[in-house]
Write a protein that binds this DNA or RNA. Structure first.
Lengths: 102, 102
DNA sequence: CTATCATATGAAAATATTATCATATAACTG
DNA sequence: CAGTTATATGATAATATTTTCATATGATAG
């Protein structure tokens, strides 16, 4: 049941900038790269690299529109996944430690 | 809604050895460190470090029993989370790429 | 109290991930 | 077609994570 894919998939979610992009798309639905760049305040290349990774994991969908590329969330997985994690964090980690050290 | 905690929590799940430990505890319920070491074929210190991290994130619970320490999964979050991810992986990534490159 | 077993810890070494930079490609415009 | 806009890519540099090693701690048995 647990394999090396899971590692990659969780890893993709384990990054502040990708979570930022996800969050932006949650709020703004379908947006092109420039809009994501503007909305997240991240470098264009950084956004592209991270969108690629999100896309590889099927967390976002892409659709060409002229010279733009419109990205949107695959909400089927992401939304319930984030909700579960949200609940967990709020239940167990109100004042959660920032690292391993006690 | 999305913050830096999420990064840490997903990161904790984004590791093969920790997933191995989680899987072992899913199957074997409550076990002490030595048993986890044996069951996962990982070094004792590695298991301890990783259990600490899982424990910090409240993905496992620990209870002292003499000189042993018994660990068990916090199934409330982990099980549905893994099920969701499982479904996602099986839906979208049957022959999934191993990295970013197409 | 000393020895032993079980587990944890910190620091360093090994390794992986992420950000950045320079540049490429693809679609459109005139 | 040459120029421009939008986005992607690959390689490298910067940074973070993981593993390992040596050792510490805690519990208990003798």
């Amino acid at each position: 049941m647990i394999g090396t894919s899971y590692q990659r998939f969780f890893q993709t979610l384990a990054n502040e900038n990708r979570l930022k992009i996800i969050h932006f798309l949650q709020v703004h639905d379908a947006r092109n790269v420039s809009e994501i760049v503007e909305g997240t305040n991240l470098e264009q290349t950084l956004v592209s690299h991270n969108l690629k990774r999100l896309h590889n994991c099927h967390f976002v969908e892409a659709k060409q529109n002229g010279k733009e590329r419109i990205y949107s969330l695959n909400k089927t997985t992401i939304e319930p996944l984030l909700l579960l994690m949200d609940k967990h964090v709020n239940t167990y980690c109100v004042n959660c430690k920032a690292d391993d050290h006690e």
